[in-house]
Write a protein that binds this DNA or RNA. Structure first.
Lengths: 329, 329
DNA sequence: CTGTTAGCGCATTCAG
DNA sequence: CTGAATGCGCTAACAG
């Protein structure tokens, strides 16, 4: 019972037909006189048009579905901030669904959104499966993916392989020859495969150098708990697949009084603000997630308008050298 | 054009009436035989009921409006995670609106949500004004506030005054007599007034002790930039109104090689994960924002059901003693 | 148990 | 420029 006054009552009070009120609401032609009467009636009653009735007619909902793997994460927060910064001034609202890093849930969330008649969907995906592609093809609204990439569907993503390479090349230049990559599941192609492979390729290219691997989760504590295993590898530098991972490791090292970067170097990916506060501050590859959110939203708007894609989908990468990596000779 | 097949077509294919299909969808009585025919027809057509048409009839939208001051913040993320953890299994979805720390926008967001026929609203408010209260009273759906408190409307909030007292009492016990509170605008009653006053009261009660005040923003850099002014006060301990503020100060001190806690102690409020990673690790009062989100959502569900409020609205406070505070004698 | 009949509140023909 | 009429897709009486 969210509504009380309808267009009908407004029409009665104003002494006009319903359709006239409707025209008033939708920029149709009305004489100045009736316009005034309708306006008065609307103000008097506090009328607000019924969202659902309106959408039942007009077909477009002005709603964008947003599917997120998790919500309590800095990166997702920034992404969302960027998306909403674009969506909002364009009159769209975001309908939020969380997949809890579960691909099946992600699929279900997309299906739900489809059913609800949203105008478009943004999926910060954990993995683009054939099922995802099928859904995307079958849908009659645009579905945009981010976080992962697949040629078969529209995507906005940072170049993880390149980011990995940047870090690999830097650590190599700093004289490191033995690294351990603390990363995530390979089912995450972007972070678990591409980013890591980029690192390995640049770090080992044409020389004797090794990269060990320890699989961690995405969160701080998972990395913290696996720190002993990571240390066992006795590398000169530990590379976390995300800053969170590196932070967890840093904490462990700090507690054990293991000096960073004197005893071991640490680096990460992401460029989280906190990386600058920790001691030592964290060397990392920074991504602009908010920009990515904005690009994603703009891309979707273009798709919605059936417009030529004007958005430049290139995502910048920033190398941030700080204190946590030592130069070896 | 998100929908194609309607209940009508399904009915035709199954050879039954529309209402029978509707009943099938809504747990009405149907003979096993027709049930099978309808099911077959639905599968064949890939029918999904039209969200808007359904809501136009049934009045409840299964949508909860969520108004947030900002989205790219750890605390808000955790809050949201808690909310969605409760809402989701109960079949509700979250419609997200961001106020950008602007009270007017917050009000507008609430009005929008009201118009859209959401079933309830959660507002993580920056300030509860008389306008907020008016809206809440006038609305025919529950509007729940969090972050701030006002007797006139339902709220879920941590006890900021008590949190302030906890910190005040602790620092007093540690022998500190001169503190500076680096806080936020007093228009934020919860953080800018209550939390601070609690601290002052407990810290100065029945003894000669002083608390200076420097107003900062909420973010890391604002505090960092104001650090010189804060240091001028020459207190033995600096208390940031939030961990973010304390972190900014810590960063400044670290850069100037000012030893914490030997030269000056630092403490904060919030219990952000990163507080444990910084060096020295930050003494703080931790709040469980995710729990708060869950309690808020549960409370709202109770309200929605017209049920007796079963939710215990008491929010726990955890004192976390770490390395950044020195014991004076 | 099932089909028929009314609307929900609005936008949109179609005549005037 | 404006009113009357129609139906979006669905649920909920209402009779049977």
């Amino acid at each position: 019972m969210a509504q009380k006054v309808t267009i009908k009552e407004v029409a009665e009070i104003a002494g006009v037909a319903q359709s006239t009120v409707s025209r008033y609401l939708n920029n149709g032609y009305i004489s100045a006189e009736k316009q005034a009467r309708v306006r008065a009636a609307i103000e008097k009653t506090g009328f607000r048009s019924n969202f659902f009735a309106k959408r039942l007619k007009t077909k477009d909902s002005k709603l964008i579905g947003i599917v997120l793997p998790r919500i309590d994460s800095v990166t997702v927060g920034k992404l969302l901030a960027g998306v909403s910064r674009i969506l909002e001034p364009n009159g769209y609202q975001g309908l939020l669904l969380i997949s809890h890093l579960d691909s099946q849930k992600e699929l279900n969330n997309i299906r739900n959104l489809l059913q609800q008649g949203v105008d478009g969907i943004i999926v910060d995906s954990v993995a683009i499966s054939s099922e995802h592609i099928k859904l995307s093809k079958a849908a009659n609204i645009p579905i945009l993916f981010t976080g992962q990439k697949d040629e078969a569907v529209p995507c906005v993503k940072i170049d993880d392989y390149k980011a990995g390479r940047m870090m690999g090349a830097y650590l190599r230049m700093q004289g490191h020859k033995k690294a351990v990559f603390a990363g995530v599941t390979t089912s995450d192609i972007a972070v678990g495969v591409d980013r890591r492979q980029g690192f390995i390729d640049a770090f080992t290219e044409n020389r004797a150098a090794t990269v060990d691997f320890v699989e961690t989760g995405f969160d701080f504590f998972s990395a913290y708990n696996l720190a002993p295993q990571i240390l066992e590898k006795k590398a000169s530098v530990i590379v976390g697949a995300t800053d969170n991972i590196s932070l967890g490791i840093l904490r462990y090292l700090h507690e054990r009084r293991i000096k960073v970067p004197d005893t071991v170097s640490v680096a990460g990916f992401g460029g989280y603000d906190v990386g600058s506060v920790v001691y030592p501050s964290l060397t990392t590859i920074a991504f602009d997630y908010e920009l990515m959110g904005m690009k994603t939203a703009n891309y979707l708007l273009d798709l919605l308008k059936g417009k030529e894609i004007t958005e430049n989908l290139n995502m910048p990468l920033y190398f941030v050298a700080r204190e946590s990596v030592k130069k070896l000779n």
